[in-house]
Design a protein around this nucleic acid. Structure first.
Length: 497
RNA sequence: GCAUCUCUAGCUCAGUCGGCAGAGCAACUGACUCUUAAUCAGUGGGUCCGGGGUUCGAAUCCCCGGAGAUGCACCA
């Protein structure tokens, strides 16, 4: 009876045979003259010129038949057939070729030609092993028929795809494409912001205090300092310190970490864009948000309507702007938007919503919004007039002390962005953070903490400004039309096996 | 956290009423100097997610546990 690793045993034997033939199966040197994508352009020219080529890549299929053999060679630019004939490469080299397997990295020297059946191929004059595969790849075969790709067998087990992402990328080109788009979207964002005079910065991930959002943090420990540190839940408070320091437009694209549940829109570590711009406010942030989505749609994706969560999200139309209370009125079956505490409480109680301890009218309205409105906001909608009570870092609206100058952007029922005119009154900010600390003391483990160093920075003076945060993973989900965050994060969090 | 579903060969899956563990592809051996899901002939390959129970007999039924998916709850 063969052992479970029978495949590996057999390939190790081939490895030994290669060494017996004097071949290093893992040589240092490789020589690539052209990428496969290049030689797929102007095919007749490559044949007419009989250019001497040296192609490198992974063998993804092998069809040996006696004294000749075919294979498919793939690099990151394309795939081409190789043709290896004993009489052309010589007997010794052909012995080496016979030890090639699908999965090996190899180098093929030769010239291009068309086979008798018309397939554009490289006719080998020499084959070289570059890196021997000892664990066979899952078999995925495919063929083109009438321009359509037909796949036989698959590598589709979701758990395996996430845990062995390299196999998913290798065997499922459409999944590889998602991450190419992700990369282009992120660099598109950089181009967009750089062109507007923003400076990209990096702030600490390991922080002595966490802040800038309502969430539970991860805690870690630094040995030399012998202190516990938090993994950041937001970049906000450090970016604001930079505005105090004289930068006028900054942004950071990076990971935040929140010690909370996981589902198809939440991963414990996720990528966030935050930006801050001095001498503008919420209106400026609204403009930049809409412009950013339009820019990515037009310049990166070249498409304006996205099929997402069963909806057609149209990014071409101007984004709707609506106040939270009017939306609550519209969707929660409430007949008036001028709610005071008693009325809001009555609505919540009537609907059997759980009232958090210490909740004022603002949190109650937000509760109704979460419960009845969020999922109904399909086309891009800026929700404005947020309760100040749930916006401890935002400026109050002039003339209405209960509201903050804040918006959140919703599409397809999901939050996509969060923005406000940033609070720069150090005295007010202290009061608000102390209120958060009081909530924390009452058991709200997501309430914020008082960051004295941040407050001190504000006391030195911070200009009026707008700030914005956009979740990158969700943005990539929208633009690549994926309903699960795990499809757009290379290694989503999984339980250890 | 709760509920439902899934877990069988390297991959994708079938497995009836509880009665010998199966297929395709992959792998191996042989044949083959224009194949391309190569073909033809042959061969090997299993902790049926793990543990326990019921039974003459369990992939199958029951219990406990694990992982994943989905929904709900929590959460931005």
């Amino acid at each position: 009876m063969q052992k479970p690793n029978q495949f590996i045993q057999l390939r190790l034997q081939k490895l030994a045979r290669l060494r017996e033939l004097g071949v290093d199966p893992y040589p240092i040197e490789s020589h690539r003259s052209h990428k496969i994508g290049e030689i797929l352009e102007d095919k007749d020219e490559w044949i007419a010129q009989q250019t001497q080529l040296s192609l490198c890549g992974r063998l993804v299929a092998m069809r040996r038949q006696g004294k000749l053999g075919f294979g498919n060679l793939e690099d990151d630019s394309g795939r081409v057939q190789i043709y290896v004939q004993r009489d052309l490469v010589g007997e010794d080299n052909y012995e080496i070729f016979k030890l090639f397997d699908a999965g090996d990295f190899v180098q093929i020297r030769g010239t291009m030609f068309y086979t008798q059946s018309g397939e554009y191929s490289i006719k080998a004059t020499e084959v070289t092993m570059l890196s021997k595969n000892i664990r066979p790849l899952p078999a995925v075969k495919e063929k083109m028929e009438d321009g359509r790709l037909i796949r036989y067998d698959e590598f589709s087990d979701i758990e395996l795809r996430y845990r062995k992402r390299y196999l998913d990328l290798l065997l499922n080109p459409s999944h590889r494409q998602v991450f190419l788009w992700r990369s282009r979207i992120i660099s598109g964002i950089r181009s967009f912001l750089d062109a507007r005079g923003f400076v990209e910065v990096e702030t600490p991930i390991l922080q002595p205090l966490y802040g800038g959002a309502n969430a539970r943090p991860f805690i870690t420990h630094h040995n030399t300092l012998d202190v516990d540190l938090y993994l950041r839940i937001a970049t906000e408070l450090y970016l604001k310190r930079l505005i105090v320091g004289g930068f006028e437009r900054v942004y950071e694209l990076g990971k935040d970490f929140r010690n909370e549940g996981m589902d198809r829109t939440h991963n414990p570590e996720f990528t966030m864009l935050e930006l801050y711009q001095a001498y503008t406010d919420l209106r400026g942030m609204m403009e930049i948000t809409e412009a950013l989505f339009h820019y990515i749609a037009d310049e990166v994706m070249h498409k304006s309507v996205y099929r997402f969560r069963g909806y057609d999200i149209d990014l071409k139309q101007p984004f709707r702007v609506a106040t939270m209370t009017e939306l609550v009125k519209e969707h929660a079956g409430i007949d008036r938007s001028d709610m005071d505490y008693d009325r809001a409480l009555a609505f919540c109680t009537q609907r059997e919503l759980e009232i958090p301890e210490g909740a004022g009218v603002g949190r109650l309205i937000a509760l109704l919004f979460d419960e009845y409105v969020e999922e109904k906001l399909i086309q891009p909608t800026f929700v404005v007039d947020y309760p100040k009570e749930i916006s401890p870092l935002a400026k109050a609206m002039p003339g209405n002390p209960l509201l903050a100058d804040r918006f959140e952007l919703f599409m397809a029922g999901y939050e996509f962005g969060n923005s406000f005119s940033e609070l720069n009154d150090p005295v007010d900010q202290r009061t608000r953070l102390e209120a958060q600390a009081a909530l924390k003391a009452m058991g709200d483990d997501e309430a914020q903490v008082v960051d004295e160093d941040f407050l001190e920075a504000l006391e030195y003076g911070m200009p009026p400004m707008g700030g914005l945060g956009i979740g990158m993973d969700r943005m990539v989900m929208l633009f690549t039309e994926n309903d699960s965050i795990k499809e757009v994060i290379l290694w989503p969090q999984m339980r250890p096996e």
